[in-house]
Simulated assay, not measured.
Amino acid sequence: MNVSRVGPRANDRTQVCRPSTRAHMQTIGFIGLGAMGTPMAWNLEEAGHDLLVYNRSDGPTEPFADAGIDVADSPRAVGQQADVVVIMVTDDEALAAVLDGEDGLLIGLDSETTVIQMSTVTPEATEAAAQTVQAQNARFVDAPVSGTVGPAEEGTLTVLAGGDDDVIDDVEAILAAMGEPIVRCGDVGDGARMKLFVNLLLGDMMSAYAEALTFGAAQGLDLEAMQQVVEAGAVDSPLFRIKGDLIAERDFQPRFPVDLQFKDLRYANEVANDVGVQLPQTAAARESFSAASAMGHGNEDMTAVLKYLESIADVTVER
C-alpha cells in the first residue's frame, strides 16, 4: 500500500523510531476506531504494516483516508482483504454486530485469516466469537488490553493474550506494536477473564479513592495534604498519583469514561455470580459508577465518580 502520511495524526510520536520497510508485511484490518482503537491502529501503521480500517461511523476513518490508508465499507470487506483482523469495539453487543449478518466479518473469513479480539467483553462472548470464527476455519486470539488512552498512544498497553501459543507466536509482532508486555493468560476466554480481573480492581480502587477524598474534604482536610499522605505511604499507586493530579485540576476529560468502567464492573459481577463468588465491594463500586452516569457524567473520565459522592456530601474536593 506504501502509505505516506499526508493527513492529520491521531498521535505524534516522532521520537520513536519505526521500521520504514513494508516488505513481507501482512495486511492488518482494524475494526473499531474509538478513543483506544484509533491510536492502536496508528501504531500498527507506524510499525510498517499495511493497514485497512473500518468503523461504523465515518468520522473516525477520515484521518486514515486522508493519509492514503484504505477504508473498508463493511466488516465483511475487512475479512476478505486482510490477513489479520483486529477488533476493538465497546461491548458484547458490538462484537456480535461486527461478526454477524450478511456484511459481517464471518462471511469474509477463510483459513488464511487470524482474528485478534481486543475489546473488553465477557468470557462468554469471547468464547462464542472464537467458536464462530473457527467454524470458518480461521484462527482466533483473545487479547484485550489493560491501559487507557495515554498508553494506547504510546504503544505501552498491557496485552492479555489467551489462545493457542502457536497462534499467539504468529501475531506477537502485531501485538507488540500496540503494547508491552504481552502476558499469556491461558486459553481463549482467559484474556477476557484477566481483563475483568484488572478492571474490577481498577474500579474498586477509583471508587474507594473518591470516597476517601470526599470524606476528607467534608472534614476540611486540604487536598494537597491528603495527596501527600497517600503518596508517602503503603497505599501509594500510579493510579492515585495520576488521578489525584487530574482531580486537583478538576480535569474530567475522558481517559477511561465512567460508562465503560460501569460496564466492566457489571460484567465482573455477572461472571462472579456465575462462578459463585461474592463481590460486595465491587457491587458497591458499580452502583457508584451507575449513579455518576445517571447524573450525566457517563462520558467523563472515571474520576467523575467523585462528582456523585460530592453531590451527596454537598462538598467539592478542590485545592
Rank of each mutant, 00 (worst) to 15 (best):
A143Y: 10
H24Q: 10
L221F: 10
D66Y: 11
L201T: 13
V78C: 13
A65R: 14
C17E: 12
Y308M: 12
M36V: 08
V198Q: 08
L223Y: 12
N269S: 07
D301Q: 09
D166C: 00
D12P: 02
V235E: 04
F215Y: 15
D165T: 14
R255C: 00
Q26R: 15
T122I: 05
L201N: 13
F140Y: 15
L309M: 12
T126R: 06
G186Q: 03
D204M: 11
M88S: 12
D204G: 12
N43Q: 01
D251A: 08
D66E: 15
Y267R: 01
L109Q: 05
G203K: 11
N11F: 11
A77L: 07
T148I: 08
F240W: 03
D170E: 15
T61G: 11
L44Q: 08
A248Y: 03
T27W: 10
D245W: 03
D259C: 02
P60D: 06
D190S: 14
G186A: 04
R286P: 00
G59N: 07
E287C: 00
E102C: 05
D274H: 13
S290F: 12
T316D: 06
A284V: 03
D83A: 07
V133F: 12
I242C: 00
L221D: 00
L196V: 01
R193L: 09
F240K: 07
G298F: 09
R9L: 10
V115R: 10
D83C: 02
A285I: 02
D103E: 11
D187E: 10
I312Q: 14
R319E: 00
V188E: 03
T14N: 13
V315Y: 06
L265D: 06
L201P: 00
T214K: 04
F64E: 03
I87R: 06
V71H: 13
D165A: 15
G79I: 06
R139Y: 02
G104N: 01
G108W: 08
D50T: 10
Q253M: 09
Y308F: 15
Q15L: 09
D274A: 15
P254E: 08
I69Y: 11
V275S: 12
G147Y: 12
G104A: 02
V317L: 02
M205D: 04
A130V: 00
M205E: 09
D110C: 09
M295K: 04
V171M: 11
S237C: 07
R266Y: 05
T316A: 06
W42F: 15
G29Y: 14
P151F: 12
D245R: 13
A217S: 08
R266F: 04
A232D: 04
Y267C: 01
L160V: 00
A72F: 08
G29W: 14
E300H: 06
M36N: 06
V229E: 04
E102N: 13
P151N: 10
D142Q: 08
F64V: 06
D301E: 05
A192T: 03
K195P: 04
